[in-house]
């Protein structure tokens, strides 16, 4: 579905991605793990074309999105949905308008149809009847769910999750994880999740990839990762301060 081939990216003198290679399979949930600030979000933004790599290719269904112009890129983006870390709901709009935003932008639909879809997506994330609320009136977990509803409003093929459970209490974390699993299954999505929450990784991931110092150091099924002998992976999973991961 998505092939990431030898991606390099630097910000100034800081090398963030140093030759990332990763295949993301269709209809599966791929979790990318790694340290905070280790380049996971940067990689995610490359996948959706918000950032352009210094070198390398990203093929989405065979199309190299790093070479596309804005218009063609927008066409590709319509296949994507994305849940941002803080949900990135538009403060100036109601929840309903937020969810309806991509529909109004791209789909030629009547207002009634749009309203119906919005209600459906909110029901899917378990938040029926909050259309009239403003994002600031919602809790963090609710915002994330609204964000997810917005991400799946256009029925995308691929949904990207940027640390979906960060900053949530364990109950809400579990709820979100379950939501991701259900949504993936119900809408037959290809999901890419970046996270450093070990429990969640194994709960939701079909495949797991470890990003360390700008490279994918390990990838495989949750069992494979659990059994990995890679010292970085082992240290990361155990949460030990002893190991190759430098603590700066």
């Amino acid at each position: 579905m998505i092939q990431i081939i030898d991606i390099h990216k630097s910000f100034g003198r800081q090398k963030v991605l140093d030759g990332v290679d990763l295949d993301i399979e269709a209809g599966k949930t791929t979790v990318i793990i790694g340290r905070s600030g280790g380049g996971k979000s940067v990689l995610l933004k490359h996948i959706i074309g918000l950032l352009k790599p210094d070198r390398g290719q990203i093929l989405v269904e065979g199309v190299d999105i790093t070479k596309l112009n804005d218009r063609d890129l927008n066409e590709i983006r319509k296949k994507f949905g994305m849940l941002f870390q803080e949900a990135a709901l538009f403060d100036s709009m109601t929840v309903g308008d937020n969810v309806a935003f991509p529909l109004r932008e791209h789909a030629r639909m009547s207002e009634a149809e749009i309203r119906e879809i919005v209600a459906d997506r909110l029901r899917a994330v378990g938040l029926s009847g909050v259309e009239a609320k403003m994002p600031s009136e919602l809790s963090g977990g609710m915002r994330k769910r609204v964000g997810l509803a917005r991400a799946i409003a256009m029925r995308p093929r691929i949904v990207l999750f940027d640390e979906p459970t960060t900053g949530l209490d364990p109950v809400m974390t579990e709820a979100i994880n379950q939501l991701i699993i259900d949504t993936q299954r119900n809408y037959d999505l290809t999901c890419v999740v970046i996270s450093h929450d070990i429990q969640s990784i194994f709960r939701i991931g079909h495949r797991i990839a470890m990003l360390y110092e700008g490279k994918i150091v390990a990838s495989g099924t949750p069992d494979e990762i659990r059994a990995s002998q890679n010292p970085v992976v082992r240290q990361f999973l155990s949460g030990s301060i002893e190991g190759p991961i430098k603590i700066i």
């Binding site: 804005d70 994507f80 932008e105």
Partner: peptide, 18 residues
């Protein structure tokens, strides 16, 4: 600025809205 730091601008891009 707030939209930028809370990724709302990125969200716009992602939703293919310039």
């Amino acid at each position: 600025g707030t939209m930028r730091v809370t990724e709302q601008i990125d969200a716009l891009y992602v939703m293919a809205a310039n």
